[in-house]
Amino acid sequence: MNSKFKGAAVLALVLFAVSPLLAHHSLGTEFQMGKPQAITGTLARVDWENPHIYWQVDVKEANGTVSHWNIEGLPPSYLHRSKVERSDMVALIGTQVTVHGRPAKDGSKLMFGLDFTLPDGRVIPVGPRANDPNAQ
C-alpha cells in the first residue's frame, strides 16, 4: 500500500467498522458516506414509507431547468421515536430547504439525507447522529 494512504485507510477501516446500523441494508454500498453534499431546492413530495422515507427536492439549475432530486432517509419508525413526524415534513412542501447528506455512488440525482435546514435556520435531523454511542 502506498504509505501516504496508510493513515487515511486506517481511519476508513474504523469508519467502516463502527458505521451505525442505519437502515435495512448497508448504506456504504449505495452512497459515498465519506463525502458530504448539500443541495438547495423546493421540497416537492414526501413519501413516508418503509423501508425508507423518500423526499423529492426540485433544484433549479443555472440554465433555468429544474432537476428532481430523490432524498433517501431512515425508516419512519426511527423518525417517529425522535419526534420527527410525517405531518412536520408534509407541512414543508413548497418550502425552500437545504438538505445535507451523502451522494449516490452511481452518480444519479439521489442522496442519503442527514438533515433539512430551513430558511429560518431551524434544522430537522433525519439521519443518524455521528458519535451515537448506542450505534457502536
Partner: peptide
C-alpha cells in the same frame, strides 16, 4: 434507539 443528528456533527 437510533439517535438523529445534523450533518455537521463530526465523529
Amino acid at each position: 434507539y437510533a439517535a438523529l443528528g445534523a450533518d455537521t456533527a463530526a465523529p
